[in-house]
Design a protein around this nucleic acid. Structure first.
Lengths: 335, 335
DNA sequence: AGCGTCTCTGTTAACGCTAACAAAAATTGG
DNA sequence: CCAATTTTTGTTAGCGTTAACAGAGACGCT
């Protein structure tokens, strides 16, 4: 099997030039006569020649591949990010190699990065939303272009991130603006920076309004944990507004409230985060915060490419602002 | 930048052997003295040597990378499949390169495959759920190990697929067993084989029960289209049972029924497909069919690896049976 | 005409690895 | 203990590409 395709020399022979000239045509080198270029192009087409990326990577030391390290690519956020990243990379002529990882601990991340490095990827994007990932990143080889997404804001690493704080503040403010006296929060796992940021933004908004934040209820992103928190919230008559750290938590909360006969938004308002495509079809349609994953992907790729091209490893930072999407799960509190 | 790491010769020098011996240790060749092996291992560790995949790929003609061509990796099914595929591949020492593609038409697929081929991937997995993909696959080079997932059952290509027909039949039968006189169906896009299979299974179950299948209502997998179909179903008093081609469609249907005041499951029963993690928290919790994505991933990778190793390109076929998950969205019809 | 300066093309040498063969060392059998 | 084997190691030659340099024309200037 594996009938090897034609190589550059075959093209060269057919076109009556040297293989180097073929290489020049392929790489868009300027100093090639138009006529020659055409002849080479024709030969390439005739033979169905396809350049060998491995050989190129060997001699240049870099492949046209970007490695991505991510955890649970089944979650909506990571999956969207990954897809967007891949699209953007493809437009720039890069392939994306995924190294998904069960746990975001030190060892797993290092192993995934190692795998990428041994394939000589041009750069690495780490979707590293948890604390333990940060440590792993610090001891990585310094000469590899690297960008982290949703990582630790306090580390000196190039970072692109959704402005969790601003998003959470907007969500909370939206509820306060509707007239609620305070806002409860169902958070994500507290070792995720996303969660921390959202807790922060929620707290900021309350404090700015002179309110004392109630204790956040910790969830784990899943509808199941949202349901459990919702069961508690449903039994607390003073609760009129809830901000959940993502839409799936909100779904669980909605379900619990429904079971307890507490009507949304009449008795309790709910705001989520992520704007999953189904959020508009929850009962009731969910007001939520929409992060722009495309923008995040574009920003991180651009940052990575500029590192790859320039060789500088600057520790930039870029933040993408999310937008509030108002639907029917928010209403003024009943007097 | 790009301080090149140590190469095999550096390791060899440090260990006092030839680079070939290092290569043998690395590839687990049997005829190496234990003592030598240890010395080489030590040198590798000391230098932090990492083999150069590009060089290896160049000389062997195959890299340790598997290319995946997929469409919308944001959907739950494809995302789960991709994640599972990546996990399994990693265990076998393979990296996964994703070539996601906006449309599953001829050109896009060919382009994605081309990209993979020029990186000399060891094999390709095509998640090709639509008709137009099949054509592209037929004109692919025959010497590349290839497996399709959820592809065209009528094509002579190695194929792993969820048994859509059986799943749909089980769902429909479940509703009939509950006592419903017939079952309506909200389908996926009809150019997806998944949809076709599910329509088929639904129809089979009805015909087997001596019933005349009502016209299926075409959706596009989204909650939005489910909602539109749901609005129609809600106004049809004779409808007591609906099987939707996936859970998101079901969500839209549930929402429409709710809006029209038709209670689920009291007045209308609903069954979905996919068992997304949130399905248990829909209102009401959704009875659905759960495909085993891990099993699909394992089967396809195994099939691909056996092609890679043996060189035979046999057109195998493997089917993974899904399981019905009963929740609260199904009840007997009211008399 | 002679000479420097472009533009275009060819030649040669890596890149880091494995395959194939060759040589050396260790082991066995009589 | 020596020849015949077997095991272990080394040597050489690519894999297909780009980089660096060298050569050949074409052109313009003095």
């Amino acid at each position: 099997m594996a009938v090897h395709g034609p190589a550059m020399t075959d093209v060269a022979r057919l076109a009556g030039v040297s293989h180097q000239t073929v290489s020049r045509v392929l790489n868009g080198h300027p100093n090639v006569r138009e006529q020659t270029r055409l002849r080479v192009r024709a030969a390439i087409a005739e033979l169905g020649y396809r350049p060998n990326g491995a050989a190129r990577a060997l001699v240049t030391g870099r492949s046209q591949v970007i490695g991505v390290v991510a955890q649970n690519t089944t979650l909506y956020g990571p999956a969207s990010l990954l897809a967007a990243l891949e699209q953007t990379a493809a437009e720039e002529g890069f392939a994306v190699s995924v190294g998904s990882v069960r746990n975001l601990d030190h060892r797993s991340i290092s192993a995934a990065v190692e795998r990428h490095l041994s394939h000589r990827v041009a750069g690495i994007v780490v979707i590293a939303p948890v604390e333990s990932a940060g440590e792993a990143l610090e001891r990585l080889p310094k000469d590899v272009p690297l960008v982290t997404v949703d990582g630790d804001p306090s580390r000196p690493v190039p970072l692109v991130t959704v402005d969790q704080v601003a998003g959470a503040r907007a969500a909370t403010q939206h509820l306060l603006d509707a007239g609620h006296r305070t806002v409860w929060h169902v958070s994500g796992p507290t070792d995720w920076f996303d969660s921390v940021g959202r807790i922060d933004g929620w707290r900021q908004a309350l404090l700015a309004a002179g309110l004392d934040p109630p204790p956040p209820m910790p969830g784990d992103w899943s509808a199941a944990s949202g349901y459990r928190c919702g069961q508690m919230l449903a039994r607390m008559p003073e609760v009129t507004a809830v901000f959940t750290a993502n839409d799936h938590l909100a779904l669980g909360v909605l379900r619990a409230l429904h079971e307890f006969g507490r009507r949304v938004p009449d008795e309790i308002s709910v705001v989520g985060f992520d704007d999953v495509p189904e959020a508009a079809y929850f009962i009731p349609p969910l007001t939520t915060v929409r992060p722009d994953f495309d923008a995040v992907a574009r920003a991180s790729l651009q940052m990575l490419l500029s590192q790859i091209e320039s060789g500088t490893g600057g520790a930039l930072r870029q933040t993408v602002a999310p937008a509030l999407v108002a639907r029917e799960s928010v209403a003024p509190p009943r007097r």
